[in-house]
Structures are given as structure tokens and as C-alpha cells.
Simulated scan of single mutants.
Amino acid sequence: MADFSTTLNFTSANEDGATELAALKIQPADHVLCLTASGARPLDLLLGNPARITAIDINPAQNELLRLKIAAFRALDHEGLLAWLGITQTPQRLHLHSKVEALLPPASHAFWQTRRRAIAAGIWHSGRWERVLRLGAAGTQMIRGRRIDALFGAPTLEDQGRIWRDHFDDAVWHSAVRLLSRRWFWTRIIGEPGGAFLPDPAASEARLTGLFRRAAESFFFRESDFATLIFRGRHTAGGALPLHLQPQNFETIRIRLDRIRIAEAGLADLGASGLAPFDAFSLSDFGSYCSGEAYDACWRGILAAARPGARFCERIFMNPVRPGTALASRIRIDEAQSAALTAADHAIIYDIRAGTLSPQ
């Protein structure tokens, strides 16, 4: 199996950019640090109108993906972008790609020359996790059938909650979640190193099934691009899309692309990277890949790169690690804001931690 640190692991979007924008309260002079991943969050954060965004990742493939998407925004109109990504169908994808690759720097051009099969299939759905979600959605469709259409077409939240309780939140669903929560499944089948830090399967099952139950009563699944991936297996132009792909935001994103700087760096070394200082941090769920010691090392790097009062937004997936006592007083979590953001987040599976930083 390909090395997780060098392959394309995430290519679409499985987070809710509106949450980061609400948490970070970006100001026009702000310099924002964002983990690259699929490139969705750096692009979404441009809607906050920051002065600069520095996107970092220790995986060069994820940084190349962001460079590729930036070139596509520059080369194509909105309709062409969705077709090139694979969100809509077209027989002209490689023709569209010829316009995109003409804008790539030489090293990026060479990187994508060896991955033309993924481009031809539509890069949006070609990542490791996108393939896993697509397989999971196929299994769900076999079992639930038209119930998925009913779930996504529910006229009210009350109806959606009832459909979820009556036709989804059952023994089959709980067993599937428990299976997917086992460390061996993540590390051996998916090849996900974060599996090493998963909690007990029973605890994971209780947490995740509870989060979906709450979400079914809180917002429409048809308005969640992550729920769409979970149950449909792919995005479509007529369904929920991340902020940067919504048509009303296309031109705003396009004219702000030069504000993104991409670097290969890790959080632990951020203070010595020469990239700082930062006013805001979009941290995704880096804790999923950390022991307690590594997690604290990352926070020391973040604090070394932060301006006083810098805002942060962190996502917590399955590893509920917290900063050690020596750091906790410098990482001021706004519990009320974090709870409100968690409840509203359309990505369903995350707890949100948001607050401010005191570097000294």
C-alpha cells in the first residue's frame, strides 16, 4: 500500500469551511496558517478576506494538489472547473487539463504527468479516503436503497430525524460503525496511521452514532457536502458543495488566489520555519495522528509562531487528546463557542475546539 506521507489521501472536502470562518473571525490584515490536506480549507478561508494564507503540509502530494486546484481556478470558468474536477461528467476532461497544466510550475507539471489517470477520472474523487467513502456509500445504498432518497428529501427536520431513527439508526448501522472503529481496519485495510490512536471500538461507536443522531435532528443532510459523500459516495453540481466551489463564491476565490503561499512544513517546527507570525490557525484534526508527546510538540510550535491573542480552530475526530498541563494555560479554549460550533458543524463527525493563544 502506498505510503500515507507521500500519496494523495484527501482530494475532495470532508469539513465545513463555515465553521472555520466563524471561529477565526478573520480580519483584512490577518496572516492565517492552514493545514493543506485536500486544499479545500485554504480555498474556503479566502472568503474571510485575509491578507495572506500560508498552507503547510508534511505530505508533498497534498501541497501539489492545492497547487493544481489553484491553477484550475485560474484556467477555467466555474462550469469547466466542476467538469475538470469530476463533479460533473465530461468527455473533455484531459482537454480541460491541458489548460490547467499550462499554468503549473515545472516541478508540479512533472508530478501530475505521472498521475494522468487520476486526472482523467476526476481528481476530486480520487483520494484514498474518497475511495473508502465511495465503497462505504455503495454498501449503504445496497442496504438502505430508496431510504437514502427519503432521507435527503425530507421536507422537515422532524421528518428527517424520524427517518433516521426508524430506518438508519439500527443494529446494522451500529455494527458497521463498530467495525470501522477497529484499529486493524484503519491501519491494515485503509493504511491510515491515525488508526493507532483510536479509542475503544465501543466508545467510538457510541460517539459516532450519537453524532449522526444529533445531526439528523439539527440540519438537513442534503445541505452537508460530507453527508453527501457518506451516503451518496460523490458530489454533484446540484448537491451540497464546499464553500469554494459554490458558484456565488467562484470569482471571489479566483481574485484572491495570490494570497495563498504553500510550504512543506510541520506544526512542531513552525516557530523556526521562517513562515511566522500568524494571527489565526486552521488546524483541522492533526491530533488524530499524534501521541500525547507529539501533540504537545505541535502546540509548542504553534505557540512559537503565534501573535498574542491569535485565534485557532481545531477539529477533533477520534483521538480526544488534550494539551499537557504546561501548555493548557496558554491555549485558551472558549468552551461555549466550541460547543456551539460543534453543534452547527455540517461535517458531523468532529468536535470543534476554538479559542485564543497566549504565546508567552
Rank of each mutant, 00 (worst) to 15 (best):
R117M: 10
R311G: 08
S358Q: 14
L229A: 09
Q62I: 03
G239S: 07
L68R: 00
D30V: 06
A240N: 05
R214G: 01
F221C: 01
G153N: 12
I253E: 08
S224V: 11
L257V: 07
H167I: 00
L327A: 11
M1K: 04
N63M: 00
A265G: 12
L45W: 01
E130N: 06
A272H: 11
D57H: 04
G48D: 02
R259Y: 03
A237Y: 00
D166H: 10
G324L: 05
D170V: 02
A121K: 10
G274S: 12
A138L: 14
Q160M: 00
Q337I: 05
I163V: 15
R315L: 12
D225Y: 14
L35I: 15
C298H: 10
A40Q: 11
T356W: 00
K25A: 15
A13H: 08
E20W: 00
F220N: 10
S358N: 14
D170C: 01
A13P: 06
L270W: 06
L179A: 15
A55Y: 04
L35P: 02
A196H: 03
L104Q: 09
T11Q: 06
A304R: 09
S175Y: 03
R188H: 11
L341W: 07
D345P: 05
G39M: 01
E314S: 13
E15A: 02
R165F: 10
I333G: 08
W112S: 04
A306Q: 08
I26Y: 02
E251W: 00
W129Y: 15
E130L: 09
A202R: 10
A347Q: 03
T236R: 12
S108I: 07
P359E: 11
W129C: 14
P106V: 03
Q27Y: 00
F317H: 10
A263W: 07
R52T: 12
T6I: 04
A326R: 09
A55C: 09
Q92C: 12
A102W: 07
Y350M: 06
L357K: 01
R183N: 08
H97V: 01
I123F: 02
I58D: 11
I119E: 09
Q62P: 05
S108R: 01
L81V: 10
A227I: 06
F250W: 03
V100W: 09
P28E: 01
R207C: 05
E335S: 14
A29L: 00
D269C: 13
